[in-house]
């Protein structure tokens, strides 16, 4: 899903956005889309490009939920915790999901295979509960079919 992190590719991403006005968030966005996370090795380059201190860059990175600072698990499962899905009985499904993946909401499994990320609303509320498995959105997920969705989409177990 994500590219293996390497410094040179990352620098190219940063360079591409140098001209952008107020482009730090957009650059971090591109880095997160490419590698899944922001490597702290990049803070000096980011600080330099966008005329900030390194602490300033860290401040921005830490503010947004989408910007992670650690490498992601092999399979990332996002689960909607908001009321639209709650009204459609997401609670039981989430319990089964956590049991199946043997990890908790917001946590990465120790072997690095799975990670469950909580999100609030995927804009698909009429047909919830919703989960996103490695960038593919699934609707009408129930405690009965969540296991097979995971098995179909994830390598490893």
């Amino acid at each position: 899903m994500f590219k293996e992190y390497d410094f040179d590719t990352a620098l190219k991403v940063i360079e591409k956005n140098t001209h952008l006005r107020g482009g730090l968030v957009e650059t971090l966005r591109n880095l997160a889309d490419t590698f899944g996370y922001i490597n702290e090795e990049l803070y000096p380059a980011l600080a330099n490009t966008f005329s900030q201190s390194e602490a300033g860059v860290l401040g921005v990175v830490s503010f947004y939920h989408d910007f992670k600072t650690k490498p992601r698990a092999k399979n990332v499962v996002k689960v909607c915790m908001a009321e639209g899905c709650y009204a459609r009985k997401s609670k039981n499904m989430i319990k089964v999901l956590c049991d199946t993946l043997e990890t908790d909401i917001g946590e990465k499994r120790e072997d690095g295979e799975f990670e469950i990320e909580e999100v609030f609303c995927l804009g698909n509320c009429a047909v919830g509960p919703n989960i996103v498995v490695n960038d593919k959105l699934y609707a009408e997920v129930t405690s009965d079919n969540v296991k097979s969705i995971i098995n179909k989409n994830c390598k490893g177990k």
Partner: peptide, 26 residues
Amino acid sequence: LRVGAGSYVCGEETALLNSLEGKRGT
């Protein structure tokens, strides 16, 4: 077109503007 980064409060207008400027969305 600019894409946000998963912050709900950035729907508030001044937080959105800060985020567009590349800052923390306060």
